[in-house]
Design a binder for these strands. Structure first.
Lengths: 307, 307
DNA sequence: CAAGCTCTGTTCATTTTTGAACAGATGGAG
DNA sequence: CTCCATCTGTTCAAAAATGAACAGAGCTTG
């Protein structure tokens, strides 16, 4: 762990000046002197070896680099504000809702469809469903309950396996009749592939193209499994999709049926929440629902699986 | 803009102590004295009025609140590191792809469907589609081109209107025959409503339930329009949906046809990228595609629109 | 058991940061 | 054109932060 080379707090000063364009306005907002604001900007620029503002007698004008800086600095600000909101929010507020976060596929293609059953079984529970896409990792504390691909390594969490699921390569019959049916993995290299944005894969479990063949390069990349599905259904090419999603679209055909990837969903929640009846109710509901629909997640003839 | 009430820089000290469990170890890592570290922790605790650590003679032990603090503090750290990487990384790298970001509805229900046309027309362009959900605001610098609901107020950006679109209230006939057909806005309060997660609405343009009636409270909330759509299609209740999405599902019926919300998509890119041919090509393609499909976005009898 | 090491906490001196006062430049109003 | 208000920049004093030295507690090793 090495300390970053600038004072994080100086970002507050940067943002205030960037927004107002003036030292004195920023100083009033920050309830400090304009001299302090100027010094903080100077220090930030010196630390980072960049010029963030052009100075003129009537104010500070952002440089192009300064412009680029704003959005990331605002992210820091947002997180700092979240920290405070979290403290102000106090302990776990007893709400009438359960917030469940889950990967996009599971949330949108399974859970959203069984939601009516939950509403019938537990009419007093108000559910907030947070869909997790490729490029984001929602903090676990922002959801009461999470379905994840990658359970926590440490921390005060309870976690258990929810269900295994499998993925395979799919395409439309239309695409295959045009482009030819692959017979071996090597054939895949001659095909148009659809996948996640390769340099934005942070979540373990989603970087599966390399498991199939090290040289697959998707020509269409999307952060959303639904975009990938839609592109596949429109005949753009081959795509690795979970069985429980592809199985809902009869026009999709499995390619190379021996290429099966295995993954696992886990339920995670904070230990403290195990005492909360509605959270347990949603957990029980999840367990029961995937058990009821188990055949959607894996093939019955699961030979030769690729991890 | 009010300054947050604690020194952001103290978060670095918090993280160092949280990770090592010891003042002296943290101090060595931070290249400062342990007294300074202790003082910074004390100041943070005082500012926020929380106790983050229990002190004992052999080290600092995180409190439950302290544990919760780590993940958000780590996000601040990550963003600060990104700031530095950004400075170190320098200018725009020339790549063979165009990365387009767009709101979930537009990306998944319109663009993904016309993607084959782009591939045919511009086979050398490799597209990365980043779908923007409710709870995230992807930095503009992370996409070459963006479709947004809210154009930038300032900065070196080029932006132009792409298309207007309308939203209306929808439900399945099945739901309506069970729950009754609303005749006036007041009737909506007696219905089950589906919408975005109210306390996670950061993006302007998505907080439209209040425009329809100030007292609508959704009983199912999701960060994904697709989840909302799926829940609606499964008969869970009423939902405000864009016409170009709902129009693809014949089982969805418009409720209170005079309640029409107008919104506008914009194309945004950095000025510098206007010189890049493949970016311009994707922009041209977008313009042409929405023009070709214009009737999907608005009703032809657009009377009494609510802004 | 004693000695040595490492931990946190306290005190005081030193260094750094901040703010008050002042100065010069610029723009707008009369 | 003059006057006033507001802007940024400079200087010096006051306040805050940091570090060095020391002390007490606890643990490990011989």
């Amino acid at each position: 762990m090495s300390r970053t080379q600038f004072t994080w707090d100086d970002l507050q000063f940067f943002l205030a000046v960037a927004r107002s364009g003036q030292l004195s306005t920023a100083a009033r907002q920050l309830r400090t002197s304009h001299v302090t604001v100027a010094r903080r900007i100077d220090r930030l620029e010196f630390s980072l070896k960049v010029k963030l503002f052009e100075r003129n007698p009537r104010g500070y004008v952002l440089t192009p680099i300064g412009h680029r800086f704003i959005e990331t600095a605002e992210k820091v600000e947002l997180e700092a504000e979240r920290l405070q909101a979290e403290i102000a929010g106090g302990a776990l507020i007893q709400r009438g809702v359960v917030r469940l976060s889950a990967p996009e596929g599971f949330a949108n293609f399974f859970f959203a469809q069984i939601l009516v059953d939950l509403a019938v079984k537990h009419p007093s529970i108000s559910l907030e469903l947070v869909t997790i896409q490729q490029i984001m990792a929602l903090s676990r504390k922002e959801a009461d309950l999470a379905v994840v691909l990658d359970p926590p390594k440490a921390g005060p969490y309870y976690f258990e396996p929810l269900t295994g699921y499998q993925l395979a390569i799919f395409a439309t019959g239309d695409y295959l009749s045009r482009a030819g049916e692959p017979q071996r993995r090597e054939d895949l290299l001659d095909h148009s592939f659809i996948g996640y944005i390769q340099d934005m894969i942070f979540a373990p479990g989603l970087d599966y193209l390399g498991d199939i063949h090290p040289r697959i390069r998707p020509s269409f990349q999307s952060s959303s499994i639904f975009s990938q599905l839609t592109a596949t259904r429109n005949g753009l090419g081959l795509c690795v999709l979970p069985l429980f999603i592809a199985g809902q679209y009869p026009e999709l055909r499995m390619v190379l049926p021996d290429v099966i990837l295995d993954r696992q969903y886990w339920i995670v929640c904070h230990h403290d929440l195990l005492q909360v009846a509605r959270v347990r109710a949603v957990m029980d509901f999840l367990r029961a629902s995937v058990a009821t629909h188990a055949q959607r997640f894996t093939t019955s003839d699961a030979h030769r699986a690729v991890r």
